[in-house]
Amino acid sequence: MTDSLEFLFSIDVANTLGEGVQWHAQSNSLWWTDIHNSRLYRFDWQSRSLQHWPTPDRLTAFGILSAEPVRLLASFASGFALYQPETGDLSWIAQPETGKPSNRFNDGRVDRQGRFWSGTMQDHGDRAPTGTLYRLDETGVHSVLHDLTIPNALCWSPDGKRMYNADTPTGQIRTFDFDPERGEPGGARVFAEVPRGKPDGAAIDSDGHLLCALFGGSGVARFSPGGALTALHDLPVSQPTCVALGGPNLDVLFVTSATEGMTEQQRKDEPMAGHVLAYATPYRGLAECTPDEARIPK
């Protein structure tokens, strides 16, 4: 475990719950959401300029349909929608959990076939395992995994034949055999136990290794395709939330973080908490998958 990171800069946003970070190669920009403050961010790599938009509901995950104009396929706290932040246009596609008012959507991602996925969790209360991972495709919304507490770390292997997912409180990342044509996971098994903290947002690099933010663990872990821990990187924030590999050469690691639940003293002790951190890495990323409009139900 000799790989190292070189700190480059931070994007000083002090998010309450920064999440869903992804690199959009076509626009050379980084995107993420602050879920609890209902805000979408875009950071332009060349100009180092930052834009943000308020969102009509808590934005939890999204895929970028286009950057000019901005069009997203998204999961908000209450369901799936098409969203244009520059105009505020919002078109609901499905709200599958209207019968579970204590639940909200959480982590999501576009798979390698252009389908959008997002999972739900109990938003308040005793955090019971009431969550479901949903797949959105041209035939509608489908419940795929059930009895989840906090779904996270959703990503796919480079060939799209393995899916990864974590139920955060367990401390484990699971892997599934994935049928790319049908969008069905099977053969669930434990892929890895995180070395500290809890597994949050994750991404796959070009070598098929999985990088995972360790919420409460002040770090990012990297696992081989076989589940072996190959690197553990310390961070100056205790609550990293999600990771993405981006930049023009896909070799910059971006990490979102949170200030949620921190005391005033903890905030003072962690002046970078809630910011987006950027590091030069020895790793190379994969292009983020974009939604296939033909797979969006009409």
Rank of each mutant, 00 (worst) to 15 (best):
A25F: 01
G201L: 01
V144N: 09
L229V: 08
S206F: 04
D34F: 07
F176H: 09
T175D: 14
S38K: 13
E193L: 10
G247M: 06
H24G: 06
V255M: 07
F223M: 07
P96D: 04
A77K: 01
G261D: 10
W23F: 03
P69A: 07
N103R: 02
S218K: 01
G197L: 08
S38A: 15
G63A: 08
F215Y: 11
D200E: 07
R71G: 05
T256E: 07
P151M: 01
Q239L: 14
G79F: 00
F7L: 13
L133H: 03
L5K: 03
S218G: 10
E19T: 02
I35G: 10
Q84E: 14
K298I: 02
A287I: 04
A287R: 09
S49P: 09
T149S: 12
R267L: 15
G217K: 03
T130K: 12
R39Q: 13
L59S: 03
H36F: 09
W53Q: 00
T120I: 07
R174I: 08
L133T: 00
T259V: 13
R58H: 11
M272K: 13
L235N: 02
T55R: 00
T149E: 07
F7P: 13
P291I: 01
S143Y: 02
P185K: 04
W117N: 03
E86F: 07
R267A: 14
P180G: 08
H275C: 06
D57A: 06
N37D: 14
T263Y: 10
L253F: 07
A128T: 04
A94D: 15
R196A: 13
A258Q: 12
W31Y: 13
A77S: 15
S75M: 02
L229G: 13
R267E: 14
R48W: 11
Y41A: 07
N249P: 06
R58L: 05
M262Q: 14
R71T: 00
V276N: 11
H142D: 02
D57L: 02
E260D: 14
R284H: 13
R189I: 10
F76V: 08
A213P: 07
K198C: 05
F254H: 04
L5R: 03
D57R: 02
V141F: 02
Y83S: 07
H275Y: 04
F105K: 01
E181C: 11
A188I: 09
R109L: 01
G114K: 07
V194H: 02
L214Q: 02
S27C: 15
E138F: 00
T132A: 06
R162G: 03
A213S: 08
